[in-house]
Computed example of a mutant assay.
Amino acid sequence: MPMRWLAVPALLLLVAVPALGAECPALLSGSLPKLHAKESIELCQRYAGKPLVVVNTASFCGFAPQFKGLEALYQRYKDQGLEVLGVPSNDFKQESGDGAETAKVCYVNYGVTFTMTEPQKVRGASATHLFKVLAEQSSSPKWNFYKYVVDRQGNVIANFSSLTKPESPEFIAAVEQALASKP
């Protein structure tokens, strides 16, 4: 087979790879370590084209009972494609420094089945990329359990303070809007 015939598939591969990367919204670039696990969550692979709720959490915050509401929301809408991503953070000094303790609070105390990450920075210059983009599209978290609703294109369509419970009508309406968004 002549060498030029081998060059064509290689050239097509080089052209196709950047196109695949272009489909991933900036919000979902990169990966985060999964809570109390050896694996990482490839954000684009896991969440591209899906409606998503992102919430910064803290195990020892007075709003921690919202884990139950977030889990109920996830169970209610997961068959329609909703994903929930919990991102523990000690930015407000209410998270354990021990991933095992954070995992116990989430998985044992509150029965969380949605994806949780290892603790991350969620505010300021040292915030993880996900939260930098969330802040650019809306605002930085003001406290723990600040909730972002993201549509299937990776755009924040609403954000909610810690005071807004996961079962509130306004929050549910935003989630249903994200579910109705086109990929």
Results as ranks from 00 to 15, higher is better:
177 Q>R: 15
137 Q>Y: 13
17 V>Y: 07
95 E>N: 13
133 V>A: 03
110 Y>I: 01
119 P>L: 01
50 K>L: 14
42 E>K: 09
157 I>M: 08
48 A>S: 15
5 W>E: 12
135 A>L: 05
150 V>I: 15
82 L>P: 04
49 G>D: 02
43 L>I: 12
20 L>V: 07
169 P>Q: 08
90 N>I: 00
183 P>Q: 10
99 G>S: 15
109 N>W: 05
39 E>P: 04
62 G>V: 08
35 L>Q: 06
68 K>G: 00
94 Q>F: 04
171 F>T: 06
31 S>T: 09
43 L>C: 12
26 A>D: 15
35 L>W: 04
20 L>N: 03
95 E>L: 11
131 F>P: 06
112 V>M: 08
173 A>G: 01
183 P>V: 09
98 D>H: 10
112 V>D: 02
48 A>E: 09
83 E>R: 12
5 W>R: 13
88 P>R: 08
109 N>E: 14
6 L>T: 06
168 S>I: 03
106 C>D: 03
116 M>S: 03
29 S>D: 11
141 P>E: 09
81 G>K: 06
65 P>A: 07
43 L>G: 07
153 Q>S: 13
134 L>I: 10
153 Q>E: 09
160 F>V: 08
145 F>I: 09
158 A>G: 14
16 A>T: 01
180 A>L: 03
137 Q>G: 11
49 G>C: 10
147 K>T: 05
19 A>Q: 06
115 T>E: 14
33 P>Q: 12
119 P>M: 03
117 T>V: 11
